[in-house]
Amino acid sequence: MKITEFMKSKKGASGIGTLIVFIAMVLVAAVAASVLINTSGFLQQKAATTGKESTEQVASGLQIIQVMGKVNNAADNIEYITLIVTPNAGSSSIDLSQATLMLTDGNKKVVKKYDLDNHDAFDFSKGSLFTGDSWGLISSEATEFGIKEIQDADESCDASTPVINKGDVVAITIKNPAAGGLTLDQRTPVSGTFEPEFGAPGVISFTTPATYLADGVVELQ
Rank of each mutant, 00 (worst) to 15 (best):
L220E: 09
D115W: 07
E5C: 06
Q63G: 07
G192W: 10
T55K: 15
L213H: 03
N107T: 10
Q45T: 09
A142I: 06
G12I: 02
G132F: 02
K148D: 00
A59S: 12
G69C: 04
V169N: 00
K148Q: 09
I3R: 14
I172D: 04
I16N: 01
A59W: 08
L182S: 11
D215M: 07
L83R: 03
G199L: 11
G192P: 05
T4H: 10
V218R: 00
T100S: 13
A32P: 03
T4E: 15
A153I: 07
S125N: 11
A13D: 05
L129D: 00
T49D: 13
L182N: 14
V28W: 03
V85R: 02
K10C: 12
V111F: 10
L129C: 02
R187F: 10
A74E: 13
V163K: 11
A33T: 11
D158Y: 14
C157L: 02
A214Y: 09
A75Q: 08
Q151K: 13
I172W: 05
L27P: 04
S125M: 06
V58F: 07
T100D: 04
Y80R: 03
G106M: 06
S14V: 01
A153E: 06
L116P: 15
G12C: 07
D152V: 03
T193I: 15
S9C: 08
E56S: 14
K126Q: 04
G15M: 09
D154H: 14
E79H: 02
D185K: 14
V85Y: 00
Q63D: 12
Y212Q: 09
L116M: 05
K10I: 13
F206A: 05
E5W: 05
N77W: 08
K148F: 00
Q45N: 15
D120L: 07
V71T: 07
T4K: 15
D168H: 12
K126G: 01
I150Y: 13
A30V: 13
L103Q: 10
T188V: 12
T55Q: 14
K2L: 12
D95C: 03
V67I: 15
K70R: 11
V190C: 11
I64N: 06
M102T: 15
L182Q: 11
N88T: 11
A142D: 06
T104A: 04
K166A: 13
V217H: 08
G180Q: 05
A13L: 13
D117W: 04
E195F: 10
A59K: 14
G106A: 08
L129R: 01
P201N: 09
D168Q: 14
E5S: 14
G17K: 01
